[in-house]
């Protein structure tokens, strides 16, 4: 989105954020936030993956396309990955994805990657609240409004641009 497009009114806007959390650290931290009764903004929907290395950049694109206003990715802290290095792979893809998203006009703050250890329930709370605030200011992400090609068969909507193709990403 270019800067001259006026942002939609923030009145009554509740951002929808989809979070992809790794099973071992961030999802567990999210559970810990729950057992510790840490209250935070209700705008996130967590999808569990085994490792942040499983997060295909296309998941992020599809999530925005389906109408989410932000995407939060969570993995183990550097060095703590249950699968040794999945979080580093996630980081590499994330950096490329950010460049791609910028070219599509998606604001930087909409997609965020955080390392949250299993013991850091408070960080789930903090990061979620921060992100909701930031996206509240930005308004809707309008990737959803991009018209879909009519020829596109419904079943293949998943095959967006093949981000992540080639090389060691």
């Amino acid at each position: 989105m270019s800067k001259d497009t006026p942002l939609p009114s923030a009145e009554g806007f509740e951002p929808r954020i989809v979070a992809f959390f790794c099973n071992w650290c961030t999802y567990t931290a999210s559970d810990l936030a729950g057992t510790s009764r840490m209250q935070y903004a209700p705008n996130t929907r967590v999808i569990r993956v085994m490792c942040s290395g499983r997060i295909d950049p296309r998941f992020v694109l599809q999530t925005l396309r389906e109408g989410a206003d932000g995407v939060l990715l969570g993995g183990c802290r550097p060095g703590d990955c249950h699968y040794q290095s999945g979080n580093y792979k996630c980081l590499r893809r994330f950096k490329l994805l950010k460049r791609y998203l910028a070219q599509m006009g998606v604001e930087n703050e909409r997609v965020r990657l955080e390392w949250i250890a299993a013991s850091e329930g408070d960080r789930v709370q903090k990061v979620t609240n921060e992100m909701v605030e930031q996206i509240r200011k930005l308004g809707h992400c309008r990737l959803e409004q991009i018209p879909r090609p009519e020829t596109e068969p419904a079943a293949e909507t998943h095959d967006l641009e093949q981000v992540g193709a080639g090389g060691m990403i």
Binding site: M50, R54, D56, H82, Y83, G86, R93, M168
Partner: peptide, 8 residues
């Protein structure tokens, strides 16, 4: 079962 290859 980390799925890193799948994402790539």
């Amino acid at each position: 079962g980390c799925g890193t290859c799948v994402a790539a």
